[in-house]
Design a binder for these strands. Structure first.
Length: 879
RNA sequence: GGGCGCGUAGCUCAGUGGGAGAGCGCUCGCCUCACACGCGAGAGGUCGUAGGUUCAAAUCCUGCCGCGCCCACCA
């Protein structure tokens, strides 16, 4: 069998993926025969494109799914996409505008139709990209948050919560995005430090007797002030409470009220109260009876409630204008600029959020929901990896306030509430024909749609058929693991727990695996403006999906919040795949037939037993790492074993048997190597599915590696004796290589080596003489138990054995003397450290006996070696 | 303002009380019959800083400096 020496992933990957699909290996169905293991994919935006964050997220999920599938679970990875309300609506709106179409002009229905068209065109793209990565999703179950079944689930969930009194309508201050023209929940607002200003100005008393000073970062909102608040115990203002000030720009009288929440130590201790534009002020107003005066339009421009001079100004223009007017009136006391403070921004478009009184909004009452969700984590029913996220989750739930779920958008699940002409309000799962209370046919549905996260929170069960009691739901729910980045822990994960517990009575998943965010090599966020975006598809094209998956896995350690990815790491993944490919070619050409069973125990050589023992050690590491989601450790263990042990030593030590041994030796050697390689491939398959499959098929094995079983541990293969014996030979080889490299001895010049060692050492060198000669490039190797000091030789120490290399014809003895002298110096330093330790009375009396003993042995060893080298220095005549 | 995490080799990180590690990068030598997407060898660190606990500290404790993140209605 001849094959190219370089592995070319592109052809292999598409061919194998198509084959897997055709064979139906990704499909999962409820069955009595196997235990379920299920993961729902966090649905990416339907119109989005796969980015590197998805690639990490999906690699982790696929690795978990593939391993469980091999372990005999009925493994379901359920894929889907999200309609992403605001994001999609804004995107499509912008595209239409480019075509000269105004969203408002074409109206709601036509617009929604356009969005569906958009989805038809681009909705499949991200799915195709996921396939390129090798994701083993059950594509027959692909769902969309706006498909029919999920629309139904959303309505059932809404109506149930509504009827239980957990959803209500109220006029409260909400987070308004003036750009996207919609309300947002608290979680969709991101606070950022901004350089603003703090302006302190005077409100004159209404009766003309004195004034009161207040400070604000948003001086334009003073047009909406309806009062001044001070702390009730603040002595400075005792006699002012109950009196009023005069608004300098519109002449209104504003009462001075007392409220506990005012901090007397901040600023002047007096606060201007703007109930319509500040959540805190809104609450003060509710307690003290101040009116709310809305002065902003939905675009955040001043409205008609303000004096004519200011009408129509946007908030930033208004800030200047109001400030200048106050200045003209001589009312400004002090200005601090820049004044750094925190301002909320829209998580979609980054605009500054306007706390705004926008009329009636829908809310979910969270108090009855958060208790059980907290309890689940506290009792250990819901587990986080890494565990520290549990505290973050609990803290967040603790402080959670009612969730605003109405959005002033068109694209999304429309709120299933109707109002009739007689003033009745009712919720309904099906579209009603008339009012549920009076039968009136004049009904109108609430115009708003639901927050996207309202449907996402149902995802783990709505995708399995809920509210129907389906077989899928019964079998696969609760799901096993949820994998996601920390950025949506609150936005999504916590809400799934709350709604899952409330609506299904069960946790939506048992374990939450939180991974970090992929950054560039410098640890910066990847962004188009920085030009540091690594496009996964580009990487897959250039290096292969396996290479990308390997690079991502190798940095996916649970504790890491930032995962810096550089392109050369992906390149390293490609090299790894190529290395495996070539190792397999070597083994394959020496393998007789397709028999992968290793030779009977009595035919195993010591190197065979060494290799069997090493793969077992690697296996244990991989299992331990995968069970605890330490993918980096699993990938690292496999990389190290396969490259640094299997290839560098295992294959190299097999070469004498391949090229110089008997036919039987050759076959035996290849059989063990093939057996170990095949076993390793199965361990690596969850991380690098394609190359492992392709190589395994080259061994002409029946069936796909995808459905091969996960290796069972074989503790009997652990063999400390073989590891120790081969370890000595390896150390000897390394010592000779180092000698050669230190002295620039050309590879073509063969060395002669004489080893004085104990019986076991002589024995293993006898057994592995061909291997050692080949690896160390040594012409002859003599072993003896007798101590001697051959003249004109270099002297190396390997595990207590003395190794002599005659220098004649190899190099000038003076060069070797230099090497000896520097080595002696290093030994002396180390010995000195050990001596000082042992001379320390505290150490000898207080440290554990074995630690002291270890130190003594070490010192003896160092002294012996040093003495031997000094002897050698004399012997070479340069002492 | 509150909380969390991190400062170890040029870079990214592992190591959590007793001899400083890995990968990549770098240097040197090799086209050695699987692989130059390779083989072999090597250099490089006062483990952020100042104290403390201990016979012993990269490792435990405290302060400080620097970086990152999360939460928060202080005008």
């Amino acid at each position: 069998m001849t094959t190219a020496s370089a592995y070319e992933p592109s052809e292999v990957e598409s061919r194998l993926y198509a084959d897997w699909i055709e064979r139906g290996y990704f499909r999962a169905e409820p069955t009595e025969e196997r235990e379920p293991f299920s993961i729902v994919l966090p649905p990416p935006n339907v119109t989005g494109a796969l980015h590197i964050g998805h690639a990490l997220d999906h690699t982790i999920q696929d690795a978990l799914i593939r391993r469980r599938r091999m372990q005999g679970y009925e493994a379901l990875w359920l894929p889907g996409t999200d309609h992403a309300g605001i994001g999609t609506e804004v995107l499509v709106g912008r595209r239409l505008l480019e075509e000269g179409i105004d969203k408002q002009a074409i109206g709601r229905e036509a617009f929604i139709e356009r969005v569906w068209e958009w989805r038809e065109r681009y909705g499949g793209r991200i799915v195709e990209q996921m396939k390129a990565l090798g994701s083993s999703c059950d594509w027959d179950r692909l769902r969309f948050t706006m498909d029919e079944g999920l629309q139904h689930a959303v309505r059932v969930a809404f109506v149930r919560l509504y009827e239980d009194g957990l959803i209500y309508r109220g006029e409260r201050i909400i987070n308004w995005c003036p750009t996207d023209q919609t309300a947002l929940s608290d979680s969709e607002v991101e606070h950022e430090e901004v350089e603003g200003e703090l302006v302190t100005f005077r409100y004159p008393m209404a009766d003309g007797d004195g004034h009161i000073e207040v400070a604000t970062t948003r001086v334009e909102t003073m047009l909406g002030d309806t009062g001044i608040a001070v702390h009730p115990d603040d002595e400075r203002y005792q006699d002012l409470v109950g009196r009023s000030v005069r608004h300098p720009l519109d002449g209104r009288e504003l009462p001075i009220v007392a409220d506990e929440t005012v901090d007397p130590s901040f600023g002047t201790g007096a606060v201007k109260v703007t109930p319509a534009h500040d959540p805190n002020d809104f609450e003060i107003a509710e307690r003290t009876g101040l009116e709310a005066r809305n002065v902003l339009t939905s675009e955040a421009r001043l409205n008609d409630a303000v004096p004519e001079a200011f009408r129509g100004l946007d908030r930033y223009e208004a800030r200047r204008a109001v400030r200048d007017r106050l200045d003209e009136l001589g009312l400004i006391v002090r200005e601090e600029r820049p004044y750094v403070h925190s301002v909320g921004h829209c998580y979609r478009c980054r605009s500054e959020i306007e706390p705004w009184l926008s009329g009636e909004q829908w809310f979910v009452k969270v108090d009855p929901l958060k208790g059980p969700a907290m309890e689940a984590a506290e009792s250990g029913g819901l587990v986080f990896s890494p565990p520290r996220w549990k505290d973050r989750y609990l803290e967040w739930l603790e402080g959670l306030r009612d969730w605003n779920i109405s959005r002033q958008l068109w694209w999304g699940h429309r709120i299933p509430v109707w109002y009739c002409s007689n003033g009745h309000e009712f919720a309904s799962i099906e579209d009603p024909k008339g009012c549920a209370q009076c039968g009136s046919a004049e009904i109108e549905q609430d115009p708003d749609v639901l927050d996207t996260w309202f449907s996402s929170q149902l995802w783990p069960f709505s995708t399995l058929g809920w509210p129907e009691e389906t077989e899928d739901l019964h079998y696969f729910y609760p799901t096993s693991v949820l994998v996601t980045g920390y950025e949506i822990l609150y936005l999504w994960v916590a809400r799934m727990v709350m709604s899952g517990l409330r609506l299904t009575g069960d946790l939506p998943f048992h374990t939450v695996v939180i991974h970090g965010l992929v950054r560039d090599a410098q640890g910066r966020k990847m962004s188009k403006s920085l030009g540091n975006v690594i496009d996964p598809l580009d990487m897959i094209e250039r290096y292969g999906a396996d290479a990308l998956r390997f690079a991502l896995s190798r940095m996916a350690s649970p504790e890491q919040q930032n995962l810096p990815l550089a392109e050369d790491q992906i390149e390293a993944g490609k090299h790894f795949a190529n290395k495996l490919w070539n190792a397999a070619r070597l083994v394959r050409t020496n393998l007789e037939g397709d028999d992968l069973s290793p030779p009977s125990p009595e035919r195993l050589t010591v190197t065979d037993r060494w290799l069997l023992s090493r793969v077992e050690a690697c296996h244990a590491e991989v299992d331990a790492a995968m069970e605890t989601y330490r993918f980096a450790d699993a990938a690292q263990a496999l990389y190290r074993f396969l490259w640094s042990e299997y290839c560098d030593w295992g294959l190299e030590m097999a070469k004498p048997r391949f090229y110089e041994g008997s036919e039987e030796d050759r076959r035996d050697a290849a059989a063990v190597l093939a057996w170990v390689l095949e076993r390793s491939l199965r361990l690596l398959h969850p991380i690098m599915p394609f190359v492992t499959e392709e190589i395994r098929r080259r061994f002409v094995l029946e069936g796909s590696i995808m459905i091969a079983s996960w290796p069972e541990p074989m503790p009997a293969h652990r063999d400390e004796e073989a590891e120790a014996r081969v370890g000595f030979a390896m150390d000897l080889v390394t010592a000779v290589r180092r000698f050669r490299s230190d002295h620039r001895v050309p590879p073509s010049l063969e060395l002669r080596v004489r080893v004085e060692g104990d019986a076991a050492q002589r024995q293993i060198l006898g057994t592995l003489s061909e291997e050692v000669r080949r690896l160390a490039r040594v012409g002859s190797i003599v072993t003896t138990g007798e101590a001697s000091s051959p003249s004109g030789s270099a002297r190396l120490h390997v595990q207590g054995a003395e190794v002599f290399i005659p220098l004649e014809g190899v190099l000038d003895p003076e060069a070797e003397c230099d090497r000896l002298r520097s080595r002696i110096e290093a030994l002396g330093e180390e010995a000195g450290k050990a001596e000082r330790k042992l001379a320390n009375e505290g150490f000898v009396t207080k440290a554990p006996a074995e630690v002291v003993e270890e130190q003594r042995r070490r010192l003896t060893r160092l002294k012996e070696e040093e003495a031997a080298l000094r002897e050698q220095l004399d012997e070479l005549g340069c002492g």
